[in-house]
Simulated scan of single mutants.
Amino acid sequence: MNAKDLYRIIGEIDDDLILEAEKQPVKKSEKTKKVVRMWTLLSAACVCLICLSLYHLRFGTSVYWNESMGMSSFKVAISADAIWQEMSPEEAVEYYQLGEIPKTLGDHLKQMAQGSFSLYKDAGGAVVYDQNQIWYQDEAQNQFVSLTLSRVTQTSPAVEDAKVSRIQGMKVTLTKTDSGGDLPTYGAEWKMNGTTISVSGNGFSEEEFLSVLREIWKQKK
C-alpha cells in the first residue's frame, strides 16, 4: 500500500463515523468526571466519619451503672516502722498531680474541715500509703460527697468485670447501690495523671452525681 492508496481509503470513510469518533473522548471524559466526583464524595464522607469518631472518643458519653454493694476498698498495709509525713494542701496538689483540690463542688457543696494530708514512708523514703479523703456536704446536710485520692495505695474493685463508662472523654467506672432510702449511693473511680480518684455520693440523682464528677474533672492539671 502506497501513500496514494492510503489517501483514497481515508477519503472513503463515512463522515458520520468521524463525528462519532470525535464524540467518544467527550463521553469518556464525562464518565471520568463522574468517577472522580464519586470518589471525592466518598473520601469526604470517610473524613467526616473519622472526625465524628475522634469527637466521640474525646467528648462522647456512654454511661453504664454497675450494681455494687459498696465502693472500692483500699488495701491498707502500713508497717509499724513507717514514717508519717504531713502535707499542706499545696503539697498535696503537687503530689497528686491535680490542678486544684476543690473547696466547693458546684455552688452548694462545701468542703468540710480538712486538717492536713498524710503520707507514710518506709525507712528508705518510699511512699507505702498515701490515701487521703476529703468530704463535702450541702448546708442542709442532705447531700454528701467523699473524694478519695491515692497514687500508691492499691484498691480492690467494687465490681468484678465492671463496664467502663466514657464521659467527656474520661474513662470512669460507675456504681450504684440501693441503700434502702429514696436515692441510691453512687460511686465512681478513674485515673487521672497517675492518681486514682474515687468518689462516692449520697442524696443525688444520677445526673446530679455526674455533675459532681464534671466539677472534679475541671481540676485537671
Results as ranks from 00 to 15, higher is better:
residue 169 G to H: 13
residue 219 Q to S: 14
residue 213 L to T: 04
residue 216 I to W: 09
residue 208 E to R: 06
residue 62 S to T: 08
residue 118 S to M: 10
residue 186 Y to L: 06
residue 52 L to W: 09
residue 221 K to A: 12
residue 64 Y to P: 06
residue 208 E to H: 04
residue 210 L to G: 05
residue 198 S to Y: 03
residue 5 D to L: 11
residue 184 P to F: 01
residue 190 W to I: 06
residue 211 S to R: 10
residue 97 Q to R: 13
residue 76 V to L: 10
residue 12 E to K: 15
residue 90 E to G: 04
residue 187 G to K: 07
residue 103 K to A: 14
residue 61 T to V: 09
residue 191 K to R: 08
residue 190 W to P: 03
residue 63 V to L: 13
residue 65 W to N: 05
residue 28 K to G: 15
residue 107 D to V: 03
residue 111 Q to L: 13
residue 165 S to K: 01
residue 210 L to A: 07
residue 201 G to P: 08
residue 144 F to E: 04
residue 79 S to V: 13
residue 74 F to P: 02
residue 87 M to I: 10
residue 42 L to K: 00
residue 116 S to I: 11
residue 168 Q to S: 14
residue 135 W to Y: 15
residue 81 D to S: 13
residue 42 L to W: 00
residue 33 K to S: 11
residue 15 D to K: 14
residue 25 P to K: 03
residue 108 H to W: 04
residue 74 F to M: 09
residue 73 S to N: 06
residue 198 S to Q: 12
residue 221 K to M: 04
residue 212 V to L: 10
residue 146 S to V: 15
residue 176 K to L: 12
residue 140 A to T: 09
residue 9 I to N: 01
residue 162 A to I: 08
residue 65 W to L: 14
residue 194 G to Y: 00
residue 55 Y to A: 12
residue 64 Y to I: 04
residue 182 D to K: 15
residue 27 K to Q: 11
residue 12 E to A: 15
residue 10 I to P: 03
residue 82 A to K: 08
residue 148 T to E: 11
residue 33 K to M: 13
residue 183 L to W: 00
residue 128 V to L: 11
residue 152 V to L: 04
residue 157 P to I: 02
residue 31 K to Q: 11
residue 72 S to P: 08
residue 18 I to N: 00
residue 43 S to P: 00
residue 185 T to L: 04
residue 76 V to A: 11
residue 194 G to W: 00
residue 21 A to K: 14
residue 143 Q to L: 04
residue 199 V to P: 05
residue 83 I to G: 06
residue 71 M to C: 06
residue 123 A to S: 14
residue 27 K to F: 13
residue 85 Q to T: 15
residue 212 V to S: 09
residue 45 A to M: 12
residue 78 I to Q: 00
residue 33 K to T: 13
residue 142 N to Y: 04
residue 145 V to P: 01
residue 204 F to Y: 05
